[in-house]
């Protein structure tokens, strides 16, 4: 039994904040990747050709129904064998982005479905080319419905970044573990990491709820 030591917390704080910065980087880069890739899947799934929708649909289902941690291991251990060597953080961002893109694709799908059919018909009537229909008519209307849901996935991704520590990314959990391994005292580092997660994710989710009320009438 040992007592909580604020001195110890003070000593380890710089390392944990370094970890926090890595965590934030992974979340932001992962989000950008997930937003972009998800849009690709969503648009591909609307393709009239079955040769596009079937493989993309199967890939999306497969990635969504299997654990992110195993996908990370797969990328981390297998990609170098194919001649694609990335650093751990890049591998982690690819994994996060790919995994969450299967969720954002679903969000975009719902957002696109919510655009009234008359908008498509109007675009056809004006004989807008397909690319311009998407960029100028459909997506701008879909986006405002989509923002709050995307935000929720950013928070979810933030809470999943500790998994990157398993592929040696120096995130918060990784730092906490390495501190614990040298001092044999895990209590303070892991507790502080847990508290930091709540301190960041709770206010963010409250903000998102406010945003949601603004955007979706």
């Amino acid at each position: 039994m040992n007592d909580w030591s604020w001195d110890y917390v003070g000593d380890i704080m710089p390392k944990l904040l370094d970890g926090l910065w890595v965590t934030v980087q992974a979340t932001l880069l992962g989000s950008v990747a997930a937003f972009a890739l998800g849009l690709v899947w969503a648009i591909a799934l609307r393709s009239p050709s079955r040769w596009v929708t079937w493989p993309v649909g199967a890939l999306v289902e497969f990635v969504r129904n299997t654990p992110l941690l195993v996908q990370l291991f797969f990328l981390f251990f297998v990609l170098p064998g194919w001649g694609l060597s990335f650093g751990p953080l890049t591998t982690g961002v690819i994994g996060l982005g790919l995994h969450y893109s299967t969720y954002t694709a679903e969000v975009y799908r719902a957002g696109i479905d919510a655009v009234p059919r008359g908008q498509w018909e109007a675009a056809t009537a004006l004989s807008l080319p397909r690319g311009r229909t998407w960029v100028a008519v459909i997506l701008p209307q879909a986006f405002r419905r989509v923002v709050p849901a995307l935000g929720n996935y950013v928070i979810a991704m933030f809470k999943d970044t500790p998994m990157l520590s398993a592929i040696t990314v120096g995130d918060m959990l990784f730092q906490a573990n390495s501190i614990g391994a040298t001092t044999f005292d895990y209590m303070e580092p892991i507790t502080v990491v847990g508290v930091l997660f709540i301190v960041i994710s709770y206010p963010t989710s409250v903000l998102l709820r406010v945003l949601e009320r603004r955007l979706v009438r």
Partner: peptide, 22 residues
């Protein structure tokens, strides 16, 4: 809000590594 706010993996590590110290 507490359990949705924290990360499941961090919670797991806390239960496994920190709780024994209590």
């Amino acid at each position: 809000e507490f359990f949705r706010g924290t990360s499941a993996l961090v919670l797991m590590f806390w239960l496994f590594f920190a709780l024994p110290l209590l």
